[in-house]
């Protein structure tokens, strides 16, 4: 495995205006590294969804990103309420978002399913009351 570029971002909670900042930075970095647009698109969609999830459900968290020649590994870690039923959470259309979040255009129940769909590896670990860690990998080949 080649050398990695390691990036870390603080994702602040309850702030929709700055949400997406970490994925924007990652997008820019991938462009500078010459990663092909079709892979950047997958990373952008999955990471943006993940960031938004942390803002909505967990009051923020951390994004830890490692970029290799052949892939990107994105770890999204929060200390939020945790997910009681992971299988249900991964069902398209299932949403726990409150009405005021839905009014903002979020909470369509496509967040986690899309993150899974646009990544090559997707792992979700969660403990109620402790927090959630999502690990996503997008391969560049």
């Amino acid at each position: 495995m080649s050398d990695a570029l390691h990036l870390e971002f603080e994702v602040s909670g309850n702030n929709f205006v700055s949400a997406g900042g970490a994925s924007d930075e990652v997008k820019k970095t991938l462009k500078m590294l010459g990663i092909a647009p079709q892979f950047i698109r997958k990373v952008a969609i999955a990471m943006y969804e993940g960031e938004i999830n942390m803002v909505i459900h967990a009051g923020g968290g951390r994004a830890i990103v490692d970029i290799y020649r052949e892939k990107i590994v994105i770890v999204l870690k929060d200390e939020g309420p945790g997910i009681p039923n992971i299988e249900l959470a991964l069902t398209e259309g299932y949403s726990t978002a409150t009405d005021n979040i839905r009014d903002l255009g979020f909470g369509a129940g496509m967040g986690l399913p899309n993150m899974k769909k646009y990544t090559d590896e997707f792992n979700l670990e969660s403990e109620v009351g402790k927090g959630t860690t999502v690990t996503m990998v997008v391969n560049f080949f």
Binding site: S2, D3, L5, L7, T29, K31, M32, L33, G34, I67, R69
Partner: peptide
């Protein structure tokens, strides 16, 4: 042109990216 790409070689681009950071 792909003007934002730091280098055609990934390892070199990565090294530069790290220097930039």
């Amino acid at each position: 042109e792909d003007i934002f790409r730091l280098d055609a070689d990934f390892a070199t681009a990565l090294k530069k990216m790290r220097e930039i950071e």
